[in-house]
Design a protein around this nucleic acid. Structure first.
Lengths: 104, 104
DNA sequence: TAAATATGCAACCATTTGGTTGCATGTCAA
DNA sequence: TTGACATGCAACCAAATGGTTGCATATTTA
């Protein structure tokens, strides 16, 4: 899960995920076209996404297709974000009460 | 939002959020007690969490209380993760179909 | 087969990051 | 008021990160 969080930390990688979300199965060159950096830099980002299991690749001759895998993101939403969301309103009202009480 | 993602990328900072989730309003020293690093290192992590608006502080005399702010996490869940979750099953079945079709 | 195309690998570099140590400041309490 | 305690600030350092360039390999296609 750490790998997923670290992978999501970079804006370029989130942009790559967005791009795949818009059009799934894009080739490396296709993805590079919209990124303002060298192909090798994009390759590295994709490798990180792949290692975090956020992207799955499929070799097709000399091309490599990239597919978005939303499962790890879903797991984060379920396991980690969910527990903070659950107490969202509670925590907010707690904070509000505290602030009102402590700073008259 | 970039600041939130980057803040969440570090395991120490997620641990700090967990700690505040378990017991809200902890002081810096209290938080340091469970972290295996110097107070100054923890201070830096808390500063990053504060800048990402994930933690709110309240000065209380010579102590500083830290409160979890779940709103940014909720925003991420809503605005960013939601759109990937929405197509989760679709994307999975798409991928499955493709793999079956392309690799007989 | 030869040229063009798509990707892979590795060395290298600047900046950021995560941590340290040392000292300063502010507040509580005896 | 003085000593202890909680926090703040700054310089410094090693390692990770994000990017580059150069060259190698594999697959089309003319």
């Amino acid at each position: 899960m750490d790998a997923v969080f670290r992978a999501l930390a970079d804006p370029t990688r989130r942009q790559l995920l967005d791009s795949l979300h818009a059009r799934n199965g894009q080739t490396l060159n296709a993805l590079c076209a919209e990124m303002d950096m060298t192909r090798q830099a994009v390759t590295k980002h994709l490798a990180i996404l792949e290692e975090a299991n956020l992207v799955t690749t499929l070799r097709k001759g000399r091309e490599k297709e990239h597919y978005l895998n939303p499962v790890p993101i879903n797991e984060i939403a379920e396991r980690w974000i969910g527990k903070f969301e659950r107490h969202r309103l509670d925590a907010l009202s707690d904070l509000k009460k505290r602030l009102e009480r402590e700073e008259p």
